[in-house]
Amino acid sequence: MELCLRVSLSCNTVAERLGLPSSSLARWVRQARIDRGQAGTRDQGLLTSEERTELSRLCKENRELRREKDCFRLAAAHLP
């Protein structure tokens, strides 16, 4: 990845040298640029890795809270 970012070699060249699929390396390089704040105009507004992790955590927490809410709602329906 650093070869693409620092040395400015193409993803295809680096992927070929490392025996990787060029599409995978291109995704990693794109995400690294986003994480470093070097995203191009096409990539503006995409999430950094840290933001993706936080979004995933919040989605999981939201699911848990909805389950708890549903459980309380069912329990309240059985109370006099």
Rank of each mutant, 00 (worst) to 15 (best):
S49I: 01
A26Q: 12
I34R: 03
S49Y: 00
E54R: 14
T13R: 10
E54I: 14
L25M: 04
A32N: 02
D43I: 01
R57D: 14
V7W: 14
R17G: 14
A39T: 02
E2L: 11
T41K: 13
R57N: 13
G40I: 04
R73E: 09
E68R: 14
N62S: 07
C59P: 00
D70I: 08
S24Y: 13
V7N: 14
E50M: 11
C4L: 05
Q44F: 04
V14F: 08
D35A: 02
R63C: 08
R66C: 10
L18M: 15
N12L: 04
E2I: 06
P80S: 13
V29W: 01
W28L: 06
K69D: 08
S56Y: 08
T13N: 09
S8G: 13
R42E: 15
P80V: 14
N62Y: 04
G37C: 08
W28F: 09
R33G: 01
V14A: 09
V7A: 15
P21I: 07
R17Q: 15
Q44R: 13
L18I: 11
S23Y: 14
R30A: 04
A15N: 04
S8I: 03
N62A: 09
A75I: 08
L5P: 00
G40A: 12
Q44P: 01
L9D: 09
G40W: 08
S23L: 09
S24R: 10
S23P: 02
R30W: 03
I34V: 12
P80M: 13
S10T: 15
G45R: 01
V29I: 06
R52W: 04
L46S: 02
R63N: 13
A77Q: 10
L18C: 15
K60P: 01
A77R: 15
S56H: 10
R42G: 04
L5F: 00
E16F: 09
E61V: 06
N12E: 12
C11V: 13
E2H: 04
A77N: 02
E68C: 06
L25V: 07
C59Q: 13
E2C: 01
E51L: 08
R42S: 14
E50I: 08
L20E: 09
R63Q: 10
A32R: 15
D70V: 03
C59E: 14
L55I: 07
T53Q: 15
V29N: 05
L58K: 06
L74K: 05
A77E: 06
A75E: 11
Q44L: 13
A76V: 06
A77V: 01
L5D: 03
E50A: 07
V7Y: 15
Q38D: 14
N62D: 07
C71D: 09
L20M: 15
G40S: 11
E51Q: 15
S49R: 05
E51Y: 03
R52C: 11
Q38N: 11
T48H: 10
G37Y: 08
T53Y: 13
E2M: 04
R57S: 11
A26D: 11
L58G: 03
L74E: 12
L74Q: 05
A75L: 10
Q44K: 12
S49H: 02
T41S: 11
A76D: 07
L58Y: 03
S24W: 14
E64R: 07
E64S: 04
S23A: 15
L79C: 05
E51T: 05
D43A: 05
V14K: 12
S56F: 04
L47W: 14
N62F: 06
Q31E: 01
